[in-house]
Amino acid sequence: MQYRELGRTGLKVSDIGYGAWGIGGAGGGWVGAQDDESLRALERFIELGGTFIDTARGYGRSEELVGRVVREHRGEGPIVATKVPPRNGEWPARAAVPVEQTFPGEHIRASLETSLKASGLDAFDVVQFHVWSDEWVGHGDWLETVQALKQEGKLRFFGISINDYEPENALALIRSGAVDTVQVIYNVFHQQPEEQLLAACQERGVGVIVRVALDEGGLTGRITKDTTFEEGDFRRTFFQGDRPAQVEQHVQALADDLGIGVDDVPDVALRYVLSHPAVSTVIAGMRTVRNVERNAATSDRDALPQQMVDKLKAHRWERNWYRG
Rank of each mutant, 00 (worst) to 15 (best):
G75K: 05
G19L: 07
F52E: 03
A41T: 01
G221E: 01
T51I: 03
L258M: 10
D242M: 04
V126R: 14
N320H: 05
P104D: 11
P85C: 01
G75W: 05
A81T: 08
D264S: 14
E90G: 00
N320L: 00
S133G: 02
A95R: 06
R71E: 09
S275C: 10
F238S: 11
Y59C: 10
Q191D: 06
F129L: 09
A297Y: 00
R316I: 04
R8S: 14
F239C: 03
I223G: 01
G205M: 05
R68G: 09
V70L: 12
A56E: 11
N169E: 08
P98F: 00
Q196L: 12
T237E: 14
E47L: 00
G17C: 12
M286L: 01
A255M: 09
N291H: 08
E135A: 06
G28N: 08
V184N: 12
N187H: 09
A278D: 04
S115R: 13
P266R: 09
R61T: 15
L197P: 03
S133Y: 01
I223N: 02
N291C: 00
A170F: 02
G241C: 05
D267K: 07
A33G: 11
G138Q: 04
D141M: 06
W321L: 15
D164W: 05
E293L: 03
A297D: 13
D264T: 09
G259E: 09
V292K: 07
V282E: 06
R8K: 15
Q192F: 07
I160L: 10
G285S: 03
V206I: 03
D125S: 05
A178T: 03
D310S: 15
G49R: 04
A297T: 05
V182C: 05
P85M: 08
R323T: 02
A20Y: 13
G32E: 10
E144T: 10
L116M: 05
A33V: 10
W136R: 02
D134N: 11
H315Q: 09
G77F: 12
G241Y: 04
E318I: 15
K12S: 12
N295Y: 11
S275D: 13
H250M: 01
V210I: 10
G259T: 10
D233Q: 13
